[in-house]
Structure formats: C-alpha cells, structure tokens
C-alpha cells in the first residue's frame, strides 16, 4: 500500500479536480441561456448586463452555497458517524438541525423582521436556534466530567430532535396559511440565496468548525476501534469526543442557516467516499468535504434545470440521485 501522504495527495487531487470542474461548469448552465463573453464584458455597465447579473447574482452564490453546505454537511456526517460508531448517524442526529429549523419556523410564524447588516431574519433565527441546541448538546457533553457515553448522547440527541419537532409542529399549527407554505418550502432546503451575505455571515463559524475537525482524523480512526482501545493508544477520549461534537454541530448549524436542512448529504456522502477510498479518516474527511461539495452542486444543477422553468427542491434530487447511486456502490462492493 502506498504511504498515506501520497494517498492524501491523490485524494485531494482527484476530488479537487472534480470539484473544480463541477464548480466552473455549473454556473454556465441554467434555465436561461447566457453568453459568457457578455458576462465578462467590462464595457457594459453591470446594472445593464443581464447575463452578468444572472451569473454573479443568481448562479454563482448558489453554486458557492451548494459547495459550502454540501462539503460541511458531509464532513459533519463523517465526524458523527465515527464518533457514535454508528453508520446511521447524520448531522441531524444531535438535534442541531431541528433547533435551527425551529428558529426559522418561529421567525416565519411570528413575522420577525430584524436584520443585522443585511443578514435577514430567517437565517438569523435559524442560527440562533442552532446555537440553542448546540448549547444543550455541549452542556450534556460536559455534564459528566469523566467522559460521556456516546449511547447516552445518541439517546439525548434523538430526544432533542423529537422535542424540537414537537415545537416545530406547534409553531406550524399557530401559523397563518401562506406562512405554512413558506415553512414547508424552507424545510425542503433552498440554495437560491440571492447574494453572498448568508454565506459570509457564517464564514467565521465554518472556519472554526473546520479547524476543529482538521485535528480529528487520527483520533477518529483510533476511536472507531472503541473508546478503551483508543485510550490505550494515548487518545484523550473525552477531549476528542467533545471537540468532535462541538466542531461537527457548529458546522451543521452554520450550514443549515444558509440553506435550510438539505437532506441525505450528511449520511450518504461519507459512505460513498468510504466505498471509493476506504475508511482512513485522514482520507475520508477531506475526500467527503470535496465530494460533498461537488455532489450538492450537481444535485442543485439538476434541481434548477430538469423541469425548467420550474425548480424542484434540491433535497428531492439529493435523495433520488444519491439513493440508487449508493445502492449501486454497495452492490458493486458485495
């Protein structure tokens, strides 16, 4: 087997090339034909240049959002699956997504109209909801000083999700009719963010979460052998688990505030990547980030062009495309 360093380079180069190709091609394709020459024609003022506006205001932020959200949710999925030693764990498992969704639902129902420097009320509220849930998760994680049982945490997460879902339902029950429609649409996930503010606003969080996750791969590998085995090899299990929890939850909250909960990415992409390149987290973590980004860009491209001029929710495409692809990978392996 090749040394790990060479394999990391190969993974980064392979998935990096895929992401670059996809990210460059996606903004060129859409429901409206645009001329690339016109997009970059500096002689036409931007205010008059429809092609440039479609490219830079409609498509590019959308592709960027897909890349950020797809990569982030995939990484969070990898971390949660390793942490819980459970292939069914997802970024939603600890209730951070549900907390973010509750925030957004409250903002829609009660018509909250606050904005901070162009960052509008619904993403703001969903971020607040994610932080609320994160606070509870963190309190749970640190409540037991001698390290926390992942089983207990998993149960707590399932309970939190159920609790938030109940509150979401109650909020929806209070909502006006057209608001209910908006809620349903938000819960389907929506990458058309119409500008860069929702992404820029959470960049610090994403950087922090990314930095935390970048320290994890070795420890996650050892943790997947079991907590005792990891401890015997010198891993500070409690600290690692706490860092993993916090980093992945923070990433999830930030991603959901951008796009709403885009389903399926967080569970399917890590498995796809493991089937392609094995389960070494030094490879899986960067591989999932790059492949998750590419995968969501492609799904969104399909969502906005397949039935043009109408769009399908991107979550529908991720599941319809990801499901069979994943089964195919499984069968090929078997």
């Amino acid at each position: 087997m090749k040394p790990v360093r060479a394999r990391i380079v190969a993974v980064l180069a392979g998935f990096g090339t895929l992401l670059a190709v996809v990210a460059l091609a996606a903004p060129l394709i859409g429901s409206t034909p645009i001329s690339i020459a016109r997009v970059f024609d500096r002689t036409i003022p931007f205010a008059d240049n429809v092609d440039a506006q479609i490219f830079f205001i409609a498509r590019f932020p959308r592709v960027l959002a897909a890349a950020v959200v797809g990569g982030t949710l995939a990484v969070a999925g990898v971390v949660f699956q390793a942490l819980f030693r459970n292939p069914l764990a997802t970024p939603d498992t600890l209730g951070v997504s549900a907390g973010a969704a509750l925030g957004a639902m409250v903002a829609i129902t009660f018509h909250l109209d606050v904005s901070v420097g162009g960052y509008s009320s619904i993403p703001l509220a969903s971020l607040a909801g994610a932080f609320g849930a994160l606070g509870i998760v963190y309190a749970l994680a640190t409540a037991r000083r001698r390290g926390l049982s992942t089983t207990v945490l998993l149960l707590a997460g399932v309970t939190m999700t159920a609790f938030f879902s109940a509150l979401i339902m109650f909020t929806q029950y209070l909502a006006d009719f057209t608001d209910t429609l908006r809620m349903v649409r938000w819960l389907m996930g929506m990458l058309d963010i119409g500008g860069y503010t929702p992404i820029v606003a959470v960049v610090p969080l994403l950087v922090a979460a990314g930095a935390v996750c970048a320290t994890l791969p070795r420890a996650l590998d050892l943790l997947s052998l079991g907590a005792d085995a990891a401890a015997a090899r010198g891993v500070d299990v409690f600290r690692t688990e706490r860092a993993a929890l916090f980093g992945a939850s923070l990433a999830t909250g930030a991603a959901v505030s951008i796009s709403g909960p885009v389903g399926f990415i967080g569970i399917i992409v890590p498995h796809m990547v493991r089937l392609m390149i094995g389960s070494d987290h030094r490879l899986v973590l960067p591989g999932s980030a790059l492949f998750g980004a590419s995968f969501l860009i492609v799904c969104d491209l399909i969502a906005r062009t397949l039935f043009s001029p109408i769009e399908v929710p991107v979550g529908v495409v991720t599941a319809i495309l990801g499901g069979p692809f994943f089964l195919w990978l499984l069968l090929r392996r078997a």
Partner: peptide, 10 residues
Amino acid sequence: FGREPGTLRG
C-alpha cells in the same frame, strides 16, 4: 404574494 422578509429568497 410572498417572500422571506428583507431578502429576495423564497
């Protein structure tokens, strides 16, 4: 007849 407040989303 509807959109997210303060933005052109949804």
